[in-house]
């Protein structure tokens, strides 16, 4: 496998609040390969946004605090740094788009100038050059009549068009990595399909890597090559998109799939919800974070955090079910060394 472009190791982030210290991210590691899309999945509050915001230096500190770990961009640690070799990381090396484009853009500046600002700051373009490039970028993001639209303000754009403008801004400096934090959650399915197609096209043209944060497994299936499943601030499973969907190795991943309706008219079985709710990260559990909701939990899960087991090349799960002395058989869970049928 090629050298990863971004390698995050054992990242831990805490926040001081009135109620105590929240351990939002508890030892997260992952790699992003060049030109690939990595999806980070998990429910609200599992730490997926905090993870990427900490890498981007967007976590407010204080109250936030990075307690361990590093994030190597082409081998150089970028945690807590704004520049490498005089070049900005944020906006230049790594671009980012957010869930809610309406509140992420400045309502008092026209769209073109907001995109141009990036180029003036990072690339030293003149105002005129930058605005001309902004129009090109809007055009690349498939906004019709880009020249006219560049002079309009955010309130004149629909949600889908605003997200396109955000993408134009994020790719202005040709970043190596684009982080998309729930980019389509606020959009309708038809507009979502347009935005996802646009991201795929841009990736094909520019060869950038994408980190896609989402809770929609349909979006993951459409976009990702690699998937990271997070729960309660930790990575519970990682693998290729086929590993995650067809060979789940962690009960939480399995539970997520069982909780969704299958598009099969014959299978009229009931949905299987995951009972309960995620643990309180003020006092994270001593053992596995998922054990309170897990139908297969054992005494060891409550006492000791599970190690990460390798199930096959590139497919790992942190679950005691994979320990060699475990005798509990869960047919739906994929174990190490099992045949892979594609």
């Amino acid at each position: 496998m090629a050298e990863p472009i971004l390698s995050v190791n054992d990242l831990a982030v805490e926040f001081d609040t009135y109620g105590g210290t929240v351990q939002a991210v508890r030892g997260v590691s992952f790699d992003v390969q060049p030109g690939e899309t990595l999806a980070i999945v998990g429910e609200s509050g599992c730490g997926k946004s905090v993870t990427v915001q900490s890498i981007m230096g967007l976590t407010p500190m204080p109250p936030g605090r990075i307690t361990s770990g590093n994030a190597l961009l082409n081998g150089v640690d970028i945690l807590g740094r704004k520049t490498i070799n005089g070049e900005d990381i944020r906006g230049d090396k790594i671009g980012m788009i957010f869930q809610d484009p309406m509140t992420s853009l400045n309502p008092t500046m026209n769209i073109g100038s907001q995109i141009a600002e990036t180029l003036i700051v990072h690339r030293g373009y003149s105002k005129k050059q930058a605005f001309a490039r902004a129009v090109e970028l809007l055009d690349m993001s498939k906004i019709p009549e880009a020249e006219k639209r560049a002079k309009q303000y955010p309130f004149e754009f629909s949600g889908g068009m605003l997200q396109r403008a955000m993408i134009a801004m994020a790719i202005a400096c040709e970043p190596e990595i684009l982080i998309a934090d729930e980019p389509t959650t606020a959009l309708d399915v038809t507009i979502q399909a347009q935005i996802l197609d646009l991201l795929n096209d841009l990736q094909r043209e520019n060869g950038m890597s994408i980190i896609l944060i989402t809770h929609d497994l349909g979006v993951v299936a459409r976009m990702a090559q690699e998937v990271l499943v997070m729960y309660a601030g930790q990575v519970v499973e990682r693998g290729s998109v086929d590993d995650i969907f067809y060979r789940p190795g962690h009960p939480y991943n399995l539970g997520l799939h069982a909780a969704m309706p299958t598009n099969d008219p014959e299978a009229e079985s009931r949905l299987t919800p995951i009972d309960g709710s995620p643990p309180d990260l003020f006092h994270p559990p001593a053992g596995c974070g998922y054990c309170a909701r897990c139908p297969y939990s054992m005494q060891v899960c409550i006492d000791t955090p599970p190690p990460t087991y390798t199930l096959s090349e590139g497919h790992e799960a942190a679950c005691w079910l994979h320990h060699e002395s475990n005798t509990q058989v869960v047919p739906e869970i994929h174990h190490a060394g099992e045949a892979v049928n594609d």
Binding site: E43, S44, H215, L217, G255, L256, A258, A259, M260, R270, L271, T272, P273, I274, D275, S277
Partner: peptide, 10 residues
């Protein structure tokens, strides 16, 4: 969230 949607639907 997905895991909770199924609870409410059921």
């Amino acid at each position: 969230d997905v895991s909770v949607q199924a609870q409410v639907i059921n």
